[in-house]
């Protein structure tokens, strides 16, 4: 363990410089996202364009998409960070624990069942994600204070598979639904407009503050359930609060863009590699890095197969999977 990357990486960079670098990466990602798109004749020089097609492209298509990518990255990486800490499992992420799929199931039920017709879709997504999380954690024994990590992952896989099966079932009921449902199984942000951005911000920003408020509890959780309890932070409460916040962040994200995997898994590990194990620092840093990753993925998705766009979820997986593999193989201290 003496070569653990986490240990050496932590604190190597002066904190101010590191945060500055992360901000610079975020900002350049935002510019990249703004600069690219179907109309290659529209670029950053049109940011101050007067009325006209260029201005419309920038303000009605690319800007909302840029903000959506930022907020999605923030939401998903925080969700993953919280889940990893609350379950003390480096594999935990909204996708692996079934929260993504639960959110998609909530959305499908909201569309299919007339009973839920009055409920806003993002609320259905939150309820679905939270329900999936609670079932997974109950299966793993998390609420008795003795969580089993193998049962956690197996439970998450089972809950996720069941939820997806139900989504697909809803999908076969009505052809009309199929089109809106399929997007919740892919991860796509091509046609996002301002209302979706507002929804993301409305849930994501309070979620960020809630995550900050939970961060010291997450630190204590890293010492194990017994020590956390001994220091005054009941692990079951931490788990419940964490699930609630993660479900809200995941739910609204899935309702807007579908399940984008890997952001929630990869970004927290990258943040820990660079900044150590203190969640009071990891929360803001993961939010920053998650946003940056999504912005670059958005830019790449528009350039990669131009003029056709690749779904951003696919691009994130293309970046995230090799990175995760690299970290698994070479940086053994994953958790």
């Amino acid at each position: 363990m003496s070569h653990s990357v986490t240990a050496h990486g932590a604190g190597k960079l002066p904190r101010g410089l590191a945060v500055g670098l992360a901000l610079a990466v975020l900002f350049s990602g935002a510019l990249f996202s703004l600069a690219t798109g179907g109309r290659s004749d529209v670029g950053l020089t049109d940011l101050w364009a007067p009325e006209g097609i260029a201005a419309t492209v920038i303000y009605d298509t690319r800007a909302p998409r840029m903000f959506a990518a930022t907020l999605l990255g923030l939401n998903l990486s925080l969700s993953g960070l919280i889940l990893q800490a609350a379950t003390r499992n480096p594999l935990a992420s909204p996708a692996i624990l079934g929260l993504n799929q639960g959110a998609a199931l909530g959305l499908s039920l909201g569309l299919v069942l007339p009973l839920f017709s009055g409920v806003p879709l993002q609320v259905m997504a939150l309820v679905g994600a939270f329900g999936a999380g609670v079932v997974t954690f109950a299966i793993s024994g998390g609420f008795t204070g003795r969580m089993d990590s193998l049962r956690l992952v197996l439970g998450g896989v089972a809950v996720g598979a069941f939820s997806y099966a139900m989504v697909r079932f809803a999908f076969t009921l009505e052809d009309e639904l199929a089109r809106s449902v399929v997007r919740w199984t892919v991860g796509d942000i091509t046609d996002i407009r301002w209302p979706a951005v507002r929804r993301l911000a409305l849930w994501g920003l309070p979620g960020l503050f809630a995550a900050l408020a939970l961060s010291q509890r997450l630190n204590l959780m890293a010492l194990g359930q017994a020590s956390a309890q001994g220091l005054g932070a009941d692990s079951r409460i931490t788990l419940l609060l964490g699930t609630l916040i993660a479900a809200a962040l995941t739910g609204v994200s899935v309702s807007v863009a579908g399940p984008i995997a890997f952001v929630g898994l990869v970004v927290p590990h990258l943040a820990k590699l660079l900044f150590g194990g203190d969640h009071r620092i990891l929360v803001p840093v993961s939010a920053l890095l998650g946003a940056a990753l999504m912005l670059y993925a958005d830019g790449v998705s528009k350039v990669l197969t131009a003029p056709v766009e690749a779904p951003v979820g696919v691009v994130v997986a293309l970046i995230g999977a090799p990175w995760f593999l690299w970290q698994t193989v070479f940086a053994r201290d994953l958790s």
Partner: peptide, 13 residues
């Protein structure tokens, strides 16, 4: 409380 098997937290000094 010092538990029997304290968990070593990653990345913490």
């Amino acid at each position: 409380v010092l538990p029997q098997h304290p968990v070593v937290p990653p990345g913490i000094s």
